[in-house]
């Protein structure tokens, strides 16, 4: 379990680089990183389902110019991992699998907002690097440019890695306990909500494409 959490967090850190810092070949989208995590943890199909649900919900989230939207990647990574790691521990059965998944989804959604706050802090911090170079380059220290770029890239990775590590560890600890406290009536309702999730996603996709 611990090895799995560490590996997934490491991958999560790498994937979060793809959001803006490096590459942007869109392996960071839930539709790709869901199944990727699924593959790692040995259940591709579950990963694919979670990936598609999250992708549809966040299909309209775009970073226009300087605006930074909630981070879909970190949610997809933590949500998929938590669902796969904790479902093994719970006697869910077919009736309550959906109810459990939607709880995890609802609890991991706010992580995107929190991660974005941290991201904004880091981008403010990056201004210090600019000032550092403002001083170093006139002195002739041109190598500092490359160093600053790679150091900042490393910080981006570290942020994604530590954040997913903490979020996943906390989730693995608390989620099973929380689930066993829930009353039976709510579980039936949640299962119903889970089956309607594709409609939510498709409706959001519909609106995205209607805005011409």
């Amino acid at each position: 379990m611990i090895v799995e959490i560490l590996v997934v967090s490491f991958i999560g850190g790498l994937l979060s680089l793809d959001v803006s810092a490096w590459g942007q070949i869109m392996v960071c989208r839930p539709i790709v990183c869901g199944p990727l995590i699924g593959l790692l943890l040995g259940d591709l199909k579950t990963g694919l389902i979670i990936g598609v649900l999250l992708e549809l919900i966040w299909i309209n989230v775009i970073s226009m110019g300087a605006a930074i939207p909630p981070d879909a990647t970190i949610v997809a990574v933590t949500c998929t991992t938590l669902i796969m790691l904790t479902e093994r521990m719970l006697p869910l059965g077919n009736n309550f699998q959906g109810s459990y998944r939607i709880i995890v989804l609802a609890l991991t959604m706010p992580l995107g907002e929190i991660f974005t706050r941290i991201d904004i802090k880091q981008r403010k911090l990056n201004a210090h690097f600019v000032h550092y170079l403002d001083r170093e380059i006139p002195k002739g220290n041109l190598k500092a440019l490359g160093k600053v770029n790679y150091f900042s890239l490393f910080l981006f990775f570290l942020k994604g890695f530590l954040f997913s590590l903490i979020a996943i560890s906390a989730g693995v600890y608390f989620l099973p306990k929380l689930f066993s406290c829930l009353p039976y009536g709510i579980l039936t309702g949640l299962n119903f909500a889970y089956r309607l999730l594709p409609a939510l996603g498709l409706a959001i996709a519909f609106n995205t494409f209607r805005d011409l």
């Binding site: 803006s20 810092a21 490096w22 942007q24 300087a66 904004i120 981008r123 403010k124 990056n126 201004a127 690097f129 600019v130 170079l133 041109l142 440019l145 490359g146 600053v148 770029n149 790679y150 900042s152 890239l153 981006f156």
Partner: peptide, 21 residues
């Protein structure tokens, strides 16, 4: 390219890094 994206001058360092060679 955007590793040192900052609120003050945005992509300036990424751009310079690409142009440096």
């Amino acid at each position: 390219m955007q590793a040192v994206w900052n609120f003050e001058r945005m992509q300036n360092l990424g751009f310079l890094y690409m142009l440096a060679p």
